[in-house]
Simulated assay, not measured.
Amino acid sequence: MTKPSAPRRHLPTSPFAAPVAPEAKHFGLGDRVSHDQFGLGTIVGVEEGIAMLVDFGSSQARILTPYTRMHSL
Rank of each mutant, 00 (worst) to 15 (best):
M1V: 02
M1F: 11
T2Y: 13
T2E: 07
T2M: 14
T2D: 01
K3G: 00
K3A: 03
P4H: 04
P4Y: 06
P4Q: 08
P4R: 07
S5A: 12
S5N: 10
S5R: 13
S5D: 06
S5W: 08
A6T: 01
R9L: 14
L11F: 14
P12E: 09
T13S: 13
P15E: 02
P15M: 07
A17S: 04
A17K: 11
A18R: 13
A18Q: 14
P19L: 14
P19I: 13
A21W: 10
P22T: 15
P22H: 03
E23Q: 14
E23G: 07
A24F: 06
A24V: 08
K25G: 03
K25P: 05
K25S: 10
H26Q: 15
H26F: 05
F27V: 11
G28N: 15
G28A: 15
G28Q: 13
L29N: 03
L29S: 06
L29C: 06
G30E: 03
G30Y: 06
D31M: 02
D31H: 00
D31V: 02
D31W: 00
D31T: 00
D31F: 01
R32I: 05
R32V: 08
V33E: 00
S34K: 07
S34E: 04
D36K: 09
D36G: 08
Q37C: 06
F38L: 10
F38H: 05
G39E: 03
G39T: 03
L40R: 12
G41Y: 07
G41R: 04
G41T: 05
T42K: 10
T42R: 05
T42V: 14
I43M: 11
V44A: 01
G45H: 02
V46L: 15
V46P: 02
E47T: 09
E47C: 10
E48V: 09
E48R: 08
E48W: 07
E48I: 09
G49E: 08
G49H: 09
G49K: 06
G49D: 11
G49S: 10
I50N: 11
I50G: 04
M52Q: 09
L53T: 12
L53V: 07
V54M: 01
V54R: 05
V54Q: 02
V54I: 11
D55L: 04
D55E: 04
F56V: 05
F56D: 00
G57W: 04
G57Q: 00
G57R: 04
S58C: 01
Q60H: 06
Q60P: 00
Q60C: 13
A61D: 02
A61R: 14
A61V: 12
A61C: 07
I63R: 01
I63T: 08
T65L: 08
T65K: 15
P66M: 03
Y67L: 14
Y67E: 08
T68K: 10
T68G: 06
T68Q: 08
R69G: 05
R69W: 07
R69N: 09
R69T: 15
H71T: 13
H71Y: 10
H71Q: 14
H71P: 00
S72A: 13
L73F: 13
